[in-house]
Every structure is written in C-alpha cells, then in structure tokens.
Design a protein around this nucleic acid. Sequence first.
DNA 1: GCAAGGTC
Length: 598
Amino acid sequence: MILIVAEKRSVAQAIAKYLGRSYRVQRIHGVPVYSFSYGGREAAALGLSGHIMDFDFAARQNVWTWLPPEELFNATPLLVVRREALDYVKALRALAAKADEVYLALDADVEGEAIAYEAALVVRSVNKRAPIRRVLFNAVTPREITAAFQRPTKLDLKKVEKVFTRMQIDLTLGAAFTRFLTLAVREHLERGRFLSYGPCQTPVLGMVVTRELQRRNFKPEKYYILKALVEVEGHRIEMSSDVRYKSREEGERAAASVKHGVVKTALYKPHEVEPPEPLETVELERRASRWLGINAKKTLDIAEELYRAGYISYPRTETTIYPQTLDLREILRDLAETEHGPYAEELLRRSFKPTRGDSDDGAHPPIYPTKGATKAEIMKIFGKAGAQAWAIYDFVVRHFLATLSPPALVEKQKIAAAFGGVEMYAEGQRVISEGYWRIYPWERQRDKPLPRVSPGAPARAIKVEVVERETEPPPQMTESELLALMKKYGIGTDATMQDHIHTNVKRGYMKLAKGRCVPTDLGIALATALFQHAPELIEPTVRAKIEAALNSIVRNSTPPPKLIAEVKAEFRTYYENLKARREEIKKALLNALNTHRQ
DNA sequence: GCAAGGTC
C-alpha cells in the first residue's frame, strides 16, 4: 500500500482526486482518509492539521514557582507529540504499519519540511523498511501534483533543523521572560493571568507604544501659509504656498507681494493608476481592516470558513502571481450567475492581462474566488456571521476582478504661479477613465479639476490671506499600518501576524478600536521598562536577527546546538539586566496594573 | 499557565 501524507485535509483529498480515477473516504480514529488506486496499487492519502509535534520542557521544569526562570537557559526542550494531534498520530501509525512506500506531500515550505519530518518519525516508529520519499508541488493542481509524484525527492534536513531550532529558541526565550515578568507581580495578578513576552508579540507592542508616546510627547507648533484666489485667463483658481512661515508677520510680509504674477507651469499629464496585485493574506487583512471595518483576526477567521466551504482559495499565502495553471476565464465564467456576473462577462468579452506582483511562496496561489455565490447564498450559509462573510467574499471577488481590469486613467494637473519671490500652487485632477475603480470602489479617486491655463499667462490675486496652522502629532497606529510594519521588519508570517496583534489584546497590553491600536497603561509600562532595561528584547529588529541566524543553518550549515547556545548566551545577559532592575520594573508594572483595575 | 508556527 502507498501511504501519502499531506499537511491538511483539502490537499489529501485533492491528491486522491488527481492521482486516482475515483476515491473513497473512510475515517480512521476520526481522521478522514482518502483511498484510491494509483498505478494499479492501493493508495491512501491522509491530511494532517499542521504540526503533530512540539517542543516542551520536562514536567518539573514547568513548575513556575519551583524553577528560577533563568534555569530555562540551561534546559533543553524535548520533542513531544501534541495532545491535539493524537488522533492524527494514531491514524498515521495505523496506516504506516501497512505501508510499503510512503510519500510526504506536505507544503513546499520550511514548516512543511518540518511537519514531513515529524510524520517520518511516526512512520519509522512502526515501519522500519518502507522507503520514505518527499514530493514537492507549487500548486494543488492536477498537473503539479502528477508531476510531483513522478519526481520524488528526499527530505531537506537543514530546513527541518531550522524550524526545530526556531521552536526551541522561541519557547526558551518566551518562557524565561514570561515567567520572570509574571513572577515579579504574581501576588497582584488574578488567577490564571500572566504577563507574556515573545519575540514577535513584544516588538509589535513596542511599535504601538512608541507611536503612542510620540503622540503624547508631541508639542504642536503654529505656522502660517498663504492662500489666494487667483485669476488667470478669466478663470478663478484657489492657490496656496508651500512655504511654512514661522510668524503671522512673516506671512503678512510675503502676502504683500502677492498681487500681479505670472504662470510658471501649467501641467496636464495623463497618469495611469494600476489595479492592485493578486491578493495575499496580509493585504487582505489590511484592506479589510481599513475599508470593511473588520479586524485582521476576524478577517482571517472568516476567510478560513469561506475556504472550507469552497468559496475562496487557501487564505494563507504570500504569493502575488497567478500560476500558469490557473484558468482565469473559467473563474470568470463561474461568477456569471451572481451579482458580479455582468462585470465578469464584460471581462470575458475582451482580452485581459492579470496584474502580477513579485512574490511567490512556492506553496500556495494568491487568494481568488473558487466558486461564484450570490449574497443570498452566503447570508444563508453563514447565518449570524452572514454580513461579514459576504463583505469578505465580495471583497475577494472584486479584488480578483480588479486584477484583470484595465487601469484607471486620470489627468494630473498642476499650476504654479510666481508673484515676485513668492510661488503659489494649485493641484488637481480629472478622471478620464474609471478602469478598475468601477468594480473596486475603495480606491476610487475624486474629480477636482483645474481650469486649462497657459504658461506665461498673467496671474492676478483677487484675495490673499495668511492662514494659521498647527503641526499635528503622528496619527494613532492603525492595524493596517501595524501589519505593514510587521511585514517590513519580518515579524511573524502571513498566517500569524494577526495572531501577534491579538495576543497583545488578550494580555491586556493594547486595545483595537475602529481599526486603531491603542496601548493600555499596562502595555505602556511593560514596553517602557523593556526599552529602558533590555531594549534588545523589544526593538522591531529582534525577530529579523533571530531569523537571519536561523537561516545560517540552511545556508552555511551552522550546527543548531552552536546557534542555540549563542542565542541563549546573548539573551541571558538581557535577562540579567532585567533581573538587576527587578524591583523597579515590578513597581512600574504594579502601578499600571492598579490604575488599570480602577 | 510561557512562544511561534502549522492547521480546524
């Protein structure tokens, strides 16, 4: 029997569908297994649910009050089977015992490689002989899957080592600092509550707190600009200066010279606004947070449900290029009977060229609709969550249609006039062609046209005024901006970024309100203490440094034990710095915990 | 009871 192990149920099912002519589903220990015939032999495909193993400390090391947290730097975490994965492991063992050939068809990324290794460990525990092979495919399509099974390869142990090293480092650092913080204020915490640290969650908090403190410490300054109503060739144009005058007097002096001038430039340039790139996870979350008022975690939860119900493709992806094998016209035809039908049919009637980003994660395509659906259908299936499910589905469809649509065309307009030494400007634009905005209203730009005037024409100021303005603090951090920063600094992955924001909310470090991130007193106190006494723990670059070190395992064959020892030694010094300031940190945290309670 | 990463 040929055993095939996939990362998730949907892939196992797809493999059975593509490799066999037909398949049967049976449940082993509650886990669906897809059986079919392949090359005249019996085959079974089993889908896991991500990792089946995890690292943990030995039992006695998990007694927080008994073990000083710094001792964790001397401990070595153990690889154990996850309790939640027990049924999967049982099913895998049962099938592996009967297998005479095993194919590890996990996703083609480092995590997939690690999960493949975990599966191989389970297989070997019951079957010493069956050859174990690894298959790699970039998309779950008949062509890719068939080809992958024709050229099987071997496990890449370097990638496995990288992932296992990351797991151990994250656990050790997370546990040591979480326990330190929690034990410092233990008697003042409610039961079951703790103060956590993590190499992703904490830098996220740091960015939000930094912004909040910038806002609080901001000192607004007054400045003055000129505004004028200017007549040129019979047209009246509102113009303003881009110079910021420090005082009203200075402004008045400049204003005095704004009487008769001349048009220096009059530009009317056509400009194409390109439709968006194919959709990936973080962009979906950012746009939903900004435009639909649905936060990132909720968005991914809903997208997951839409995926499981067969309406959209796999929602955790970094890819912004449609694969060659994806039939875009077929998807358009599938939308025909829905609200989006007329637009889809219009696209079908003409030739189109999809936009293209520059990212391919090698494992999943961009997010696109896999089934046409009407609002009524989605509302019915999703019940209470119907409105939000429709909002996300409708967005995915519109985004998909936008990527196949022509650009919008606007005329960018700019007029500059010189009045002696003072230059005044006006900017405007006229929409020539709506292009993809018709289906993608969130990016639609307004018409605010300027009249047509000629360079060299005389300009006469009818009215001039000095307007007082104030410099403004940076805006509150939006969730959308935070996600963009996380991506920039390499904090988290496409699938986990929203989790790291949510963890800070769960811990009481920040709140999300109307798409904005607002740190609590506790969050500010924690971040401030870390910035003061162990900045290396909270700076946004921490994660990227760890990630770079991990990559040296794959690139330079750095032995994991050496790397783990180095990282531990480094973070141990940060730990000592915090420990030396324990009382001070405790006081600041308690202070915040108490104000928080009132 | 800690993390981050898969996935349900």
